[in-house]
Simulated scan of single mutants.
Amino acid sequence: MIQQFYPQTPHTYRFELNKDMHLSAAHFIPHDDAGNCQYMHGHTYFINITIAGDELDEMGFLIDFKVIKNLIHKKYDHTVLNDHPEFKQKNPTTEQVAETIWSTIQQKLNTLSNQPKCIQVVVRETPTSYVVYRPKAEDLL
């Protein structure tokens, strides 16, 4: 994988973890204005997840990298995004995918005693197009 550099979000946490991954998935946007995107097609998504916090767990991690990969890659790789329950009421646009990944990660982080926060998710759909999702401060409480 080519090393990517992503927009940074300022924060005051002591630690910042970044996890890159890629997955292959298909989707379609069932809307007349979506042009060719209304038809089933696939992407190799490149995803960067940024987690920050002040405290490490008993092993010395904010969170183990493999936990992040298992939450996202195992769930979505080689699937049709529209078939997932979380996309039944919303279209799996890159924006919605980024927000959904953030929500999935943050729900897991909320169960950890050291309380790290997911402060950014970048989803690259094509070599020239990506979305950055950053939660509002109140979403991190």
Rank of each mutant, 00 (worst) to 15 (best):
H41A: 02
G42D: 03
P92G: 04
H78P: 02
N70M: 12
H43E: 00
T111Y: 02
H73I: 11
H22Q: 13
E55D: 11
S113D: 13
A34D: 06
I119R: 11
P85Q: 12
K75A: 09
P127R: 08
Y39L: 05
Y76D: 00
V131W: 00
A52H: 01
S103H: 15
T50H: 10
E16H: 14
V123Y: 02
T9V: 14
L109A: 07
E99N: 12
D32T: 07
S129N: 14
A25V: 07
D64P: 13
C118L: 13
I105N: 04
F87A: 08
I105V: 15
L141R: 07
V97K: 08
E99H: 04
T9D: 03
P30I: 02
E99F: 08
Q4T: 03
F46Y: 13
Q120R: 15
Q106G: 04
F5S: 10
Q8R: 14
D32L: 10
E125C: 09
N110W: 03
E55V: 07
N70I: 00
F65E: 09
V132G: 05
A34E: 05
Y6W: 14
I68R: 06
L56T: 09
V67A: 13
K136T: 08
D54H: 12
M1L: 09
I105W: 08
R14I: 00
P92L: 02
L23P: 04
V67Y: 09
E55Y: 15
L112S: 03
L81H: 01
D77G: 10
E86P: 09
D54Y: 07
L17D: 00
Q106D: 07
I63R: 02
F87I: 08
F28C: 10
N36F: 12
K136Y: 05
A34V: 06
H78C: 08
F61E: 03
A137G: 01
N70R: 15
K88W: 11
K90C: 15
M21C: 06
N70W: 10
T12C: 05
V131D: 00
D77P: 08
H27F: 10
T111D: 06
K108A: 14
L109T: 03
E99T: 09
T100Y: 09
F5Q: 10
I51C: 01
I47T: 02
T104L: 09
G53W: 07
Y13H: 14
F61H: 14
L81P: 13
G42E: 07
